[in-house]
């Protein structure tokens, strides 16, 4: 299991905090999800409820079970997974898949790294807490990991995903991905795809 050094931004101090991007999701990560993510999510949902926020605006991934997800894809070569650990806690999780093909006309049929599931810890999500998010950069680094895996596999940096509704703008504008529209076969989520050129442009944003 490979491990790579990364940095997240601690919002309160505006300082870089060292962490790791790890290839794989371990029992420790799943335990973190159970022991820390879930209670934090439950508290956040309670607050949303008290504020009278419409349930349709609640985080759509709130029913996700990472134990089941990790178990379902364990050992599958076609479904690599990633975790981000920082300050001794799992901050982000991702499972991808390498057998899908591109839909965008200019790269139709070519393989890409498809992001099946991506989630950041509840305390890092700006919309979910009344306090500031603790650490940012998790989502960005996981997308970068998908791009680098794509490059390593010879897929040129091509990635694809179905965005959770509240992330549509981020994938479109910050990641610069192509919006292929609502996919009625996938819970009406919006499908985004990234070309090798868009991948280069995304990476160039941080240089």
């Amino acid at each position: 299991m490979s491990e790579f050094q990364i940095y997240l931004l601690e919002v309160a101090s505006d300082a870089p905090i060292e962490g790791s991007l790890i290839e794989g999701i371990t029992e420790a990560n799943v335990n973190d999800w159970e022991d820390a993510w879930m209670p934090a999510l439950a508290r956040a949902l309670q607050q949303l409820k008290e504020k009278g926020v419409d349930r349709r605006l609640w985080p759509q991934s709130r029913h996700w079970d990472w134990r089941r997800k990790a178990e379902a894809f364990k050992g599958l070569l076609a479904a690599p997974s990633f975790s981000i650990v920082c300050q001794g806690m799992t901050q982000g999780l991702m499972i991808v898949e390498t057998l899908e093909s591109c839909r965008l006309l200019q790269q139709k049929g070519k393989p890409l790294v498809y992001i099946q599931y991506l989630e950041t810890a509840p305390w890092n999500r700006p919309g979910l807490t009344t306090e500031r998010p603790r650490l940012t950069g998790v989502g960005t680094l996981l997308v970068r990991a998908a791009i680098e895996l794509s490059r390593s596999e010879g897929f040129g940096g091509r990635i694809g995903l179905h965005s959770l509704p509240q992330a549509n703008a981020w994938y479109a504008n910050v990641c610069g991905m192509s919006d292929l529209g609502i996919d009625p076969t996938k819970e009406n989520l919006r499908y985004f795809e990234m070309t090798p050129e868009q991948a280069d442009a995304f990476i160039a944003k941080g240089v």
């Binding site: 985080p59 992001i115 991506l118 989630e119 950041t120 700006p126 989502g139 989520l189």
Partner: peptide, 9 residues
């Protein structure tokens, strides 16, 4: 209003 995430729910 950004909640970075992806995947079927």
């Amino acid at each position: 209003d950004v909640e970075i995430g992806a995947g079927l729910f």
